[in-house]
Amino acid sequence: MNSLKVKNIGKTIVPIMLGTAVYAFGLLYFIVPNQLMEGGVTGITILLNYAFSIPIFLTTLLLNLPLFLLGWKVLGSNQIVYTGLGIGSLTFFLWVFEQAIDKGWLVPFTTEHDFILASLYAGVTLGLGLGIVFRYGGTTGGVDIVARILGRKFGWSMGQIILVVDVIIIGASLLYIPREKILYTLVAVFIASRVIDFIQEGAYAAKAFTIISDDAPQIADLITAEMERGVTLIPAIGAYSKQAKHMVYCVVSRQEIRRLSQLVKSVDPTAFVIISDVHDVMGEGFREG
Protein backbone atom coordinates (compact mmCIF):
# COMPACT_ATOMS: atom_id res chain seq x y z
CA MET A 1 0.00 0.00 0.00
CA ASN A 2 1.58 3.30 -1.08
CA SER A 3 1.98 6.28 1.23
CA LEU A 4 -0.64 8.35 -0.62
CA LYS A 5 -3.31 5.70 -0.08
CA VAL A 6 -2.38 5.38 3.59
CA LYS A 7 -2.60 9.16 3.94
CA ASN A 8 -6.06 9.25 2.32
CA ILE A 9 -7.32 6.46 4.58
CA GLY A 10 -5.96 8.35 7.59
CA LYS A 11 -7.89 11.43 6.51
CA THR A 12 -11.06 9.35 6.78
CA ILE A 13 -10.35 7.29 9.90
CA VAL A 14 -9.35 10.20 12.14
CA PRO A 15 -12.47 12.32 11.45
CA ILE A 16 -14.78 9.32 11.93
CA MET A 17 -13.16 8.59 15.29
CA LEU A 18 -13.38 12.26 16.25
CA GLY A 19 -17.07 12.33 15.29
CA THR A 20 -17.90 9.24 17.36
CA ALA A 21 -16.02 10.74 20.32
CA VAL A 22 -18.13 13.92 20.16
CA TYR A 23 -21.31 11.86 19.76
CA ALA A 24 -20.46 9.62 22.73
CA PHE A 25 -19.69 12.70 24.83
CA GLY A 26 -23.06 14.25 23.97
CA LEU A 27 -24.90 11.08 24.93
CA LEU A 28 -23.25 10.64 28.30
CA TYR A 29 -22.82 14.30 29.22
CA PHE A 30 -26.22 15.69 28.22
CA ILE A 31 -28.71 12.96 27.21
CA VAL A 32 -28.42 10.23 29.83
CA PRO A 33 -27.94 12.43 32.96
CA ASN A 34 -31.15 14.31 32.11
CA GLN A 35 -33.12 11.19 31.12
CA LEU A 36 -33.63 12.30 27.54
CA MET A 37 -33.80 9.88 24.61
CA GLU A 38 -32.33 9.14 21.20
CA GLY A 39 -33.56 7.21 18.22
CA GLY A 40 -32.27 4.05 16.57
CA VAL A 41 -30.19 1.39 18.28
CA THR A 42 -28.71 4.08 20.51
CA GLY A 43 -32.20 4.71 21.84
CA ILE A 44 -32.56 1.02 22.69
CA THR A 45 -29.24 1.07 24.57
CA ILE A 46 -30.39 4.13 26.53
CA LEU A 47 -33.72 2.47 27.38
CA LEU A 48 -31.88 -0.64 28.63
CA ASN A 49 -29.66 1.61 30.72
CA TYR A 50 -32.66 3.38 32.25
CA ALA A 51 -34.53 0.13 32.92
CA PHE A 52 -31.72 -2.22 34.01
CA SER A 53 -28.62 0.01 34.46
CA ILE A 54 -26.75 -1.92 31.75
CA PRO A 55 -23.65 0.00 30.54
CA ILE A 56 -24.39 1.75 27.25
CA PHE A 57 -21.08 0.80 25.65
CA LEU A 58 -21.84 -2.91 26.22
CA THR A 59 -25.32 -2.91 24.69
CA THR A 60 -24.04 -0.74 21.82
CA LEU A 61 -21.52 -3.43 20.95
CA LEU A 62 -23.85 -6.41 21.51
CA LEU A 63 -26.71 -4.93 19.44
CA ASN A 64 -24.54 -3.61 16.61
CA LEU A 65 -22.28 -6.64 16.17
CA PRO A 66 -24.89 -9.00 14.62
CA LEU A 67 -26.23 -6.14 12.49
CA PHE A 68 -22.71 -5.41 11.27
CA LEU A 69 -22.11 -9.08 10.35
CA LEU A 70 -25.46 -9.18 8.54
CA GLY A 71 -24.61 -5.98 6.69
CA TRP A 72 -21.19 -7.36 5.73
CA LYS A 73 -22.86 -10.45 4.24
CA VAL A 74 -25.67 -8.65 2.41
CA LEU A 75 -24.10 -5.32 1.44
CA GLY A 76 -20.47 -6.37 1.02
CA SER A 77 -17.26 -5.17 2.61
CA ASN A 78 -16.88 -2.02 0.48
CA GLN A 79 -20.10 -0.47 1.80
CA ILE A 80 -19.76 -1.58 5.41
CA VAL A 81 -16.08 -1.16 6.32
CA TYR A 82 -16.36 2.40 7.63
CA THR A 83 -19.53 1.43 9.48
CA GLY A 84 -17.44 -1.12 11.36
CA LEU A 85 -14.97 1.63 12.21
CA GLY A 86 -17.82 3.83 13.44
CA ILE A 87 -19.28 1.06 15.63
CA GLY A 88 -15.90 0.14 17.10
CA SER A 89 -14.82 3.69 17.87
CA LEU A 90 -18.25 4.63 19.27
CA THR A 91 -18.16 1.64 21.61
CA PHE A 92 -14.65 2.57 22.72
CA PHE A 93 -15.45 6.21 23.44
CA LEU A 94 -18.67 5.31 25.25
CA TRP A 95 -16.58 3.06 27.50
CA VAL A 96 -13.99 5.82 28.01
CA PHE A 97 -16.56 8.44 29.01
CA GLU A 98 -18.51 6.01 31.19
CA GLN A 99 -15.28 5.18 33.04
CA ALA A 100 -14.45 8.88 33.39
CA ILE A 101 -17.90 9.59 34.85
CA ASP A 102 -17.81 6.61 37.22
CA LYS A 103 -14.40 7.66 38.57
CA GLY A 104 -15.50 11.28 38.96
CA TRP A 105 -13.11 12.64 36.33
CA LEU A 106 -16.03 13.96 34.29
CA VAL A 107 -19.12 15.48 35.89
CA PRO A 108 -22.16 15.33 33.54
CA PHE A 109 -24.43 18.31 33.00
CA THR A 110 -27.64 17.77 34.95
CA THR A 111 -30.56 20.07 35.61
CA GLU A 112 -33.89 19.84 37.39
CA HIS A 113 -35.63 22.69 35.59
CA ASP A 114 -33.81 24.04 32.53
CA PHE A 115 -34.14 20.98 30.27
CA ILE A 116 -34.34 23.16 27.17
CA LEU A 117 -30.69 24.09 27.72
CA ALA A 118 -29.75 20.42 28.08
CA SER A 119 -31.68 19.48 24.92
CA LEU A 120 -30.11 22.31 22.91
CA TYR A 121 -26.56 21.37 23.87
CA ALA A 122 -27.37 17.69 23.36
CA GLY A 123 -28.66 18.42 19.86
CA VAL A 124 -25.57 20.42 18.94
CA THR A 125 -23.07 17.83 20.19
CA LEU A 126 -24.93 14.84 18.77
CA GLY A 127 -25.44 16.59 15.44
CA LEU A 128 -21.82 17.69 15.29
CA GLY A 129 -20.57 14.19 15.99
CA LEU A 130 -22.87 12.44 13.53
CA GLY A 131 -22.32 15.14 10.92
CA ILE A 132 -18.58 14.55 10.97
CA VAL A 133 -19.05 10.77 10.80
CA PHE A 134 -21.49 11.00 7.87
CA ARG A 135 -19.39 13.58 6.04
CA TYR A 136 -16.46 11.17 5.87
CA GLY A 137 -18.49 8.16 4.77
CA GLY A 138 -19.02 6.40 8.09
CA THR A 139 -22.05 5.56 10.19
CA THR A 140 -22.59 4.47 13.78
CA GLY A 141 -24.31 1.28 12.64
CA GLY A 142 -27.65 0.20 14.03
CA VAL A 143 -30.73 1.21 12.09
CA ASP A 144 -28.60 2.58 9.23
CA ILE A 145 -27.55 -0.98 8.37
CA VAL A 146 -31.12 -2.28 8.59
CA ALA A 147 -32.36 0.59 6.43
CA ARG A 148 -29.73 -0.10 3.76
CA ILE A 149 -30.60 -3.80 3.65
CA LEU A 150 -34.37 -3.23 3.49
CA GLY A 151 -33.87 -0.47 0.95
CA ARG A 152 -31.91 -2.82 -1.29
CA LYS A 153 -34.34 -5.74 -0.86
CA PHE A 154 -37.67 -3.91 -1.07
CA GLY A 155 -36.83 -0.46 -2.44
CA TRP A 156 -38.02 1.28 0.73
CA SER A 157 -36.72 4.73 1.52
CA MET A 158 -33.94 4.80 4.15
CA GLY A 159 -35.45 7.94 5.62
CA GLN A 160 -38.87 6.30 6.03
CA ILE A 161 -37.41 3.20 7.69
CA ILE A 162 -35.31 5.21 10.13
CA LEU A 163 -38.26 7.47 10.95
CA VAL A 164 -40.57 4.51 11.70
CA VAL A 165 -37.98 2.84 13.93
CA ASP A 166 -37.25 6.10 15.76
CA VAL A 167 -40.96 6.70 16.41
CA ILE A 168 -41.37 3.16 17.82
CA ILE A 169 -38.33 3.45 20.08
CA ILE A 170 -39.10 6.93 21.36
CA GLY A 171 -42.72 5.90 21.88
CA ALA A 172 -41.62 2.88 23.91
CA SER A 173 -39.58 5.18 26.13
CA LEU A 174 -42.85 6.57 27.52
CA LEU A 175 -42.84 3.52 29.77
CA TYR A 176 -39.78 4.83 31.60
CA ILE A 177 -39.59 8.60 31.22
CA PRO A 178 -42.19 11.41 31.46
CA ARG A 179 -43.91 12.83 28.40
CA GLU A 180 -42.25 16.23 28.78
CA LYS A 181 -38.85 14.56 28.47
CA ILE A 182 -39.99 13.16 25.12
CA LEU A 183 -40.83 16.67 23.98
CA TYR A 184 -37.40 17.89 25.03
CA THR A 185 -35.93 14.92 23.16
CA LEU A 186 -37.71 16.06 19.99
CA VAL A 187 -36.05 19.47 20.39
CA ALA A 188 -32.65 17.77 20.65
CA VAL A 189 -33.40 15.58 17.60
CA PHE A 190 -34.45 18.60 15.53
CA ILE A 191 -31.35 20.60 16.47
CA ALA A 192 -29.15 17.58 15.74
CA SER A 193 -30.68 17.18 12.27
CA ARG A 194 -30.00 20.85 11.46
CA VAL A 195 -26.39 20.58 12.63
CA ILE A 196 -25.89 17.39 10.61
CA ASP A 197 -27.14 19.18 7.48
CA PHE A 198 -24.81 22.10 8.19
CA ILE A 199 -21.79 19.82 8.55
CA GLN A 200 -22.75 17.76 5.51
CA GLU A 201 -23.30 20.76 3.24
CA GLY A 202 -20.17 22.49 4.42
CA ALA A 203 -19.48 25.46 6.59
CA TYR A 204 -18.40 27.48 3.56
CA ALA A 205 -21.32 28.69 1.48
CA ALA A 206 -21.14 30.62 -1.77
CA LYS A 207 -23.49 31.88 -4.47
CA ALA A 208 -23.81 30.66 -8.04
CA PHE A 209 -24.81 33.16 -10.73
CA THR A 210 -26.53 31.97 -13.89
CA ILE A 211 -26.79 34.93 -16.26
CA ILE A 212 -28.78 34.89 -19.49
CA SER A 213 -28.01 37.81 -21.78
CA ASP A 214 -27.33 38.69 -25.40
CA ASP A 215 -24.09 40.22 -24.11
CA ALA A 216 -22.93 37.08 -22.30
CA PRO A 217 -19.37 37.05 -23.76
CA GLN A 218 -18.78 40.67 -22.71
CA ILE A 219 -20.13 39.95 -19.21
CA ALA A 220 -17.85 36.91 -18.92
CA ASP A 221 -14.81 38.93 -20.01
CA LEU A 222 -15.61 41.68 -17.51
CA ILE A 223 -16.02 39.25 -14.62
CA THR A 224 -12.72 37.60 -15.47
CA ALA A 225 -10.89 40.94 -15.72
CA GLU A 226 -12.45 42.76 -12.76
CA MET A 227 -13.01 39.95 -10.26
CA GLU A 228 -10.49 37.31 -11.34
CA ARG A 229 -13.11 34.60 -11.03
CA GLY A 230 -13.50 31.62 -13.32
CA VAL A 231 -16.44 31.89 -15.69
CA THR A 232 -18.13 29.29 -17.89
CA LEU A 233 -20.03 30.12 -21.06
CA ILE A 234 -22.80 27.58 -21.71
CA PRO A 235 -24.42 27.37 -25.17
CA ALA A 236 -28.20 27.78 -25.04
CA ILE A 237 -31.19 28.29 -27.32
CA GLY A 238 -34.15 30.48 -26.42
CA ALA A 239 -37.35 28.39 -26.40
CA TYR A 240 -39.48 31.28 -27.69
CA SER A 241 -37.08 33.07 -30.04
CA LYS A 242 -35.25 29.91 -31.17
CA GLN A 243 -32.10 32.04 -31.22
CA ALA A 244 -28.73 30.68 -30.08
CA LYS A 245 -27.05 32.50 -27.22
CA HIS A 246 -24.83 31.86 -24.22
CA MET A 247 -25.43 31.61 -20.49
CA VAL A 248 -22.79 32.75 -18.02
CA TYR A 249 -22.14 30.56 -14.98
CA CYS A 250 -19.97 31.85 -12.14
CA VAL A 251 -19.52 31.05 -8.43
CA VAL A 252 -18.50 33.80 -6.02
CA SER A 253 -18.29 34.31 -2.28
CA ARG A 254 -21.11 36.04 -0.43
CA GLN A 255 -19.04 39.21 -0.13
CA GLU A 256 -18.82 39.44 -3.94
CA ILE A 257 -22.54 39.18 -4.70
CA ARG A 258 -23.21 42.91 -4.91
CA ARG A 259 -20.11 43.58 -6.99
CA LEU A 260 -20.96 40.89 -9.52
CA SER A 261 -24.55 42.12 -9.77
CA GLN A 262 -23.31 45.64 -10.51
CA LEU A 263 -20.93 44.38 -13.21
CA VAL A 264 -23.76 42.51 -14.94
CA LYS A 265 -26.04 45.57 -14.85
CA SER A 266 -23.27 47.77 -16.23
CA VAL A 267 -23.16 45.63 -19.37
CA ASP A 268 -26.82 44.59 -19.70
CA PRO A 269 -29.41 46.10 -17.32
CA THR A 270 -32.04 43.71 -18.71
CA ALA A 271 -30.04 40.51 -18.15
CA PHE A 272 -31.91 37.62 -16.55
CA VAL A 273 -29.94 36.62 -13.44
CA ILE A 274 -30.50 33.56 -11.24
CA ILE A 275 -28.67 33.50 -7.88
CA SER A 276 -28.63 30.17 -6.03
CA ASP A 277 -26.97 28.76 -2.93
CA VAL A 278 -23.84 26.67 -3.29
CA HIS A 279 -22.35 24.62 -0.47
CA ASP A 280 -18.89 23.21 0.12
CA VAL A 281 -17.12 24.85 -2.83
CA MET A 282 -13.75 23.35 -3.72
CA GLY A 283 -11.21 24.55 -6.24
CA GLU A 284 -9.05 27.52 -7.09
CA GLY A 285 -10.15 30.63 -5.23
CA PHE A 286 -12.18 28.59 -2.74
CA ARG A 287 -11.52 25.76 -0.27
CA GLU A 288 -8.97 23.21 -1.41
CA GLY A 289 -10.33 19.66 -1.71
Rank of each mutant, 00 (worst) to 15 (best):
D214M: 02
G230A: 14
E228M: 13
T185K: 05
I219S: 13
L222A: 11
A220Q: 05
I211R: 09
G202Y: 04
I223D: 02
F209E: 06
V189H: 08
H246D: 11
V189C: 04
V231Q: 09
I223A: 14
F198G: 00
A205R: 14
A192D: 07
V248D: 07
V187G: 08
F198E: 05
L186N: 06
V187S: 06
Q200Y: 08
R229V: 13
A236H: 12
A225P: 01
L186E: 10
A225N: 13
S241I: 01
P217Q: 13
V231T: 15
V248S: 00
H246E: 15
S241C: 08
I237F: 03
K245I: 07
G202C: 06
D214H: 07
P217E: 14
T224Q: 14
G202F: 00
I219Y: 06
T224A: 15
R194F: 00
D214A: 00
I212V: 15
V195M: 02
T232K: 08
L222T: 12
G202W: 06
Y204A: 02
I199F: 08
L222P: 05
D221V: 05
I223H: 10
A239C: 10
Y204N: 14
V187E: 04
G202Q: 03
Y240N: 08
A225Y: 03
A220H: 03
A188K: 09
P217C: 09
V248C: 07
D197T: 01
